[in-house]
Amino acid sequence: MSPRRALLLCGVFAPPLFFLALLLFGWMTPGYDLARQFISELGAVDSPVRVLVNVFGFGLFGVFLVLFSVGVVRSSVLRTTGKLSALFFFAAVVSMILVGVFSCDANCINTTVTGDLHNKFSFYPFPILTVAFLLLLVDATRIKNLRWLVPFIPLLGIPALIFRFASLPLLREMYPGLLQRAAIGLPFFLVMLIAMGVYRTEEPGDARIPKSAKFFYTTALALIVLSVAGLMFSLFASSRAPYDGVPGICADTTECRTICQNNRGRCQSYCARNEEAPVCTVLGF
């Protein structure tokens, strides 16, 4: 395998490994609800899996995608526009790494400089990745072997932007964790598809996909399926059990007694729509 292909392969495996790791770390955290709590809460200063998430989640994921960015620059297939996208992939990845470096505060109610930096760096990857995808879209329309990517870029990119930036009040209030995972998962699944496409076209003389590539593709897709299945299982379990907190704010009534004092409006808004929720009965909202 050529060094270029090895670098591009990092982009194939980074997203599925990242989401599988987050799924496992979520299951390892007592009381954590994947559908109702944010990913950042797994890496918060009070999380029992903080080091695992920030090092083997955000950190390792970032290293893999940095290598992928180098592979994009060194690609013999992509033109100047496509190679320029590597700069934006790199910038987005650095921001993702810094999300892990600067953990959010306890319960991700950020009041410190570190928590504020966490919020800022968690915002930047999405608009930066949008530019990268648009640059690659230009190249994909020009390169025959990459044209199959053209419909996937808007089909995955536009919903990701909607999930990330649109208000979607009901979904954001009830299942903020699920919405966040969709907003992050779609663009990074697109990164995986792009890596597969460029990896395949690096040796245009190949009439077939090599057996090694088929193995890598199958393994990566299997990890994606496993992660999605695990997330759906968690969502099913979450929907059948009453949540003891306020989604996206606090995880149980003990936390909510304190946190809702400083977030009264958000807690009252949730309880206005969910009067029978256990936490609302306890808090009296």
Rank of each mutant, 00 (worst) to 15 (best):
G284K: 07
G82D: 04
L9I: 10
V72G: 02
R266D: 06
V99E: 12
P210K: 12
D46V: 08
C267V: 08
L20N: 14
M96K: 07
G82C: 09
A86E: 11
Q261C: 07
A220R: 01
G248M: 02
L221W: 15
E255H: 09
V53A: 10
N119L: 14
L52H: 08
V113T: 14
L149C: 09
T111G: 08
G205R: 05
C267I: 02
G82N: 09
D206N: 14
L20S: 05
L22R: 12
S40D: 13
P176A: 05
G284C: 05
A277E: 13
S167Q: 14
E173S: 14
L9Y: 11
L134V: 15
I184D: 09
G82F: 04
F165V: 04
P187L: 11
V73M: 13
I128T: 12
A182V: 14
V55P: 05
V12C: 10
D105W: 06
I209Y: 10
A182P: 06
M192E: 01
S2T: 04
S167V: 15
I162N: 10
L34R: 01
Y175H: 04
R264W: 11
Y199D: 15
T112E: 09
G26A: 10
T201G: 02
R36P: 02
R264N: 11
K144G: 14
F236S: 14
S227C: 12
A277P: 11
T111E: 06
L65S: 03
R36N: 00
L155M: 15
D116L: 12
E255V: 00
Y175M: 01
G57T: 13
C260I: 09
F163M: 01
T219S: 12
T219D: 01
E173I: 07
I158F: 10
S122Q: 08
Q261F: 11
N274V: 01
A195G: 10
F88G: 06
F152M: 10
L283F: 04
L117Q: 01
F152Y: 13
N262Q: 11
C250I: 01
E202M: 12
V63A: 13
F285W: 05
R172T: 13
L223D: 08
I97K: 10
I259H: 06
N107C: 10
S234K: 02
G62P: 04
P278C: 00
F236E: 13
R208T: 14
G82E: 08
C280Q: 03
M96A: 12
L235M: 14
G115Y: 07
F236C: 07
P169E: 00
G43T: 08
S47P: 01
A160G: 08
A140G: 04
G59Q: 03
M174L: 14
K120V: 07
R273P: 06
T111F: 03
P151K: 04
L178F: 06
A91K: 08
Y32S: 02
I153G: 10
L149G: 04
G265R: 10
L52W: 14
L7G: 13
L17V: 09
G11F: 07
G197R: 09
L149K: 02
L135C: 01
P247R: 03
L178S: 00
L137Q: 13
I109A: 04
N119K: 14
